[in-house]
Design a protein around this nucleic acid. Structure first.
Lengths: 229, 229
DNA sequence: GACGTGCATTGATGTATGTCAAATTCCACC
DNA sequence: GGTGGAATTTGACATACATCAATGCACGTC
């Protein structure tokens, strides 16, 4: 489906497009599409030639790799207002799989057009380079966590990341994706995830009701995440 | 020390600078320096404001993080003709530590000048974006290996990576850095590294003499690296 | 409302890898 | 060429986490 005017303002929210003029944004949009994906549908597969990159409007996209024995590692989760696969433009093919884990609306932008637009607009290049550098540093942090932190620490960090800005004490958070997926994201097994949660519960740090989690002791969680433990 | 004419051709070897005209390259060089670092000397520390990015001329630079308890995780090793910390330009500070692990000569380029040069030269932007996207995909592979592959697999992969192109059978490779450093690079302990090597040796896949390693059975190593085992 | 499917939890058990410690080898420096 | 300190190796032991298996729970479908 064509990317109509009604979505323009929403696209501008994404920092990648924030600096564009109305005319430029319209041009990007004119080469874009709105696509709907059902839960479990694949947006693209690893190795596939890359002609588009994406911005999530609604829903959740899982970005992941699969090993030879079928095990899946979730590399990232893209929710509303988050873009993905921009860097694949330069490689020509996607470095991982992407599938929707719930009904999702996604904006798809044409790589070729975006590249020519970057040629005419250095500012846009800088936007993309900033975005890529941030993603790169995010990856460094990811490797840091995977190698230097324990499963418990990573889970505590994840819970704390879900807390909205400015909340001071005992915030209540919701897990936006199945625990199975979070476990893979954190590099642990679902069983281990469940066990760590049980321990945090019995230690009085959290209270749980399905996907809703009350963080009773932020201080203890922060210590767990930061310190050796 | 100023970056004199004698180094220009060497800098051009790096893909990042390959597309530059003589005039452009001279300008980059005029804002650059040649710096010598002894073994163990730090090039920059994590969090430090970033004013330069680097290209190794000779030697080896270790890029790493340190955890609260002092444990060190080597994220990457930059040898001759490899650049590092380009992406820090956009963040304003270095995301990790860099120290020389042997006497090294490094070209240092001024970020501010390079940024203005990118403003005038979209081609240069594209070069950097290509380089960043490759690094990004390298990181994805890294996380893939850390989470989906065993220590043995990662070590086998590392050994195979050291084999020069086109060598068909029983290549002899040399470890260019202390095993301690490689172990950290692979996310395992030095003791584990040693034990895995011993196992590969007793399985007849390799022969070792200090830092020299004969890969006796490439097929078996490839199977070990790729398959589950 | 019964049924089925997939997710989550809990228990029992296995194992790869980490940790601690000591012996040995290597290497740089005097 | 000897000496000291770091890197490496090896052994004994500990443990976090994975694996296997069974049960429970929630959700959607007919």
């Amino acid at each position: 489906m064509a990317l109509t005017q009604q979505y323009i303002e929403q696209i501008r929210q994404c920092t990648l497009f924030a600096s564009l003029t109305d005319a430029e944004l319209n041009r990007v949009a004119s080469h874009g599409q709105v696509v709907e994906w059902g839960a479990g549908q694949t947006v693209f597969s690893q190795g596939e030639p890359c002609h588009q990159f994406y911005l999530v409007q609604r829903g959740m996209i899982k970005l992941y790799r699969i090993s030879v024995d079928g095990t899946e590692k979730v590399m990232d989760l893209a929710g509303p207002n988050q873009s993905f696969a921009e860097s694949a433009m330069f490689d020509g093919k996607y470095p991982l799989h992407a599938t929707a884990i719930e009904p999702s609306t996604v904006f798809a932008f044409d790589c070729k057009d975006f590249m020519t637009q970057m040629h005419d607009n250095v500012e846009l290049c800088f936007r993309l380079m900033l975005s890529m550098s941030q993603r790169l540093h995010g990856m460094i942090n990811e490797i840091d966590r995977l190698t230097l932190h324990s499963g418990t620490q990573r889970l505590a960090e994840y819970l704390l990341e879900q807390v909205p800005e400015g909340v001071m004490q005992s915030p209540c958070i919701r897990l936006l994706v199945p625990k199975l997926v979070i476990a893979s994201r954190l590099g642990i097994q679902p069983e281990t995830f469940s066990r760590i949660m049980a321990r945090l519960r019995s230690d009085g740090m959290i209270e749980t009701h399905n996907d809703t989690i009350l963080l009773k002791d932020l201080g203890a969680l922060r210590c767990l995440a930061a310190c050796t433990g």
